Each structure stands twice: as structure tokens, then as C-alpha cells.
Amino acid sequence: MFMLFLEAAAQVAVIALVLGAGLPALFALGVRSFAVAGGAGSDDRSGSGTPTIPSGLLRAIGVLCFAVVVAAVLVGLTIIVATGLGQEVSFDHVFPTFTPKD
């Protein structure tokens, strides 16, 4: 019984880390990549001469980060709406679809 509790607690902890800290960190990475691509932080004070990442690639990384965050929010809203309608969400066909509860 205690092992079942520990397994459930571990699952909750992993989901909390991914959604609770992971999505905001991903959003922050997207904001930072757009800021650096726009010229913020472009002055090299260290003098190390490290190669810079092209601004097009930084913008693509930012768009990808924002797309993942928006997709996660939309999936969460879909699950909330489905539950409110007395249904559940199925991911059998890649896209989330509403299915009647069994």
C-alpha cells in the first residue's frame, strides 16, 4: 500500500515539475531567444570571442518554444472543457478528441 502511495506521489511530482516549472522555463527561453535575436545582450564583454548564434535561428527557437507552450495550454483547456461537458479527452488519433465517458 505504501509503495502505491510513493508511486503516485512520484508521478505527481514529475508532472508538477514538467508543467509547473518546465512550461514557464520554456516560455522564458523563448522570450530570451527573441531578446537576444533583437540585439539585447549582443555586446561581448567577456572577450572570449565565442561564436554567436544567427538571429534567424534564435527567432526559430523562440517560435518553437512559444508553440509548445501554447499547445500545452490548449490541451489543458480542452481537458477542462471536456470534463465540464461530462466527457473525456482521447488522444487516439494524435489530435485530442472528446469521447463519452464509459
Rank of each mutant, 00 (worst) to 15 (best):
M1N: 05
F2R: 15
F2M: 15
F2I: 15
M3E: 15
M3T: 13
L4W: 11
L4V: 12
F5V: 12
F5L: 13
F5Y: 11
E7F: 14
A8L: 08
A9L: 14
A9I: 07
A10R: 14
Q11E: 15
A13H: 10
A13L: 14
A13G: 11
V14D: 10
I15G: 00
A16V: 12
L17T: 10
V18C: 08
V18W: 08
L19P: 00
A21S: 12
A21V: 13
A21W: 12
G22Y: 08
G22W: 04
P24M: 03
P24V: 04
A25R: 06
A25I: 02
L26N: 05
F27W: 09
A28H: 03
G30R: 05
G30Q: 02
V31C: 08
V31D: 11
V31Y: 08
V31S: 08
S33T: 07
S33R: 00
S33Q: 07
F34E: 10
A35E: 06
A35Y: 04
G38I: 00
G38T: 01
G39P: 01
G39E: 00
G39T: 05
A40M: 07
G41L: 02
G41W: 04
S42A: 08
S42P: 04
S42Y: 00
D43N: 10
D43Y: 12
D44Y: 06
D44T: 05
R45Y: 13
R45H: 11
R45I: 11
R45F: 12
R45W: 12
S48I: 12
S48M: 14
G49I: 00
T50F: 10
T50M: 12
T50S: 10
T50A: 11
T52Q: 06
T52V: 05
T52G: 04
T52P: 01
I53N: 08
P54I: 02
S55T: 03
G56D: 08
G56R: 01
L58N: 00
R59P: 06
A60G: 10
A60D: 10
A60H: 01
I61P: 00
I61R: 04
I61N: 04
V63P: 08
V63D: 08
V63Q: 08
L64S: 10
L64T: 10
C65G: 03
F66N: 03
V68M: 02
V69G: 02
V69H: 02
V70P: 10
A71Y: 00
A72W: 01
L74G: 02
L74F: 11
L74M: 11
V75W: 04
V75C: 07
V75G: 00
G76K: 03
G76T: 03
L77N: 02
I79W: 10
I79E: 13
I79N: 11
I79T: 09
I80T: 05
I80C: 03
V81A: 05
T83G: 14
T83H: 13
Q87Y: 11
E88N: 05
V89D: 09
S90Y: 12
F91E: 08
D92Y: 14
D92P: 09
P96N: 01
T97D: 14
F98I: 14
F98E: 14
P100E: 05
P100R: 03
P100G: 04
P100S: 03
K101F: 09
D102M: 15
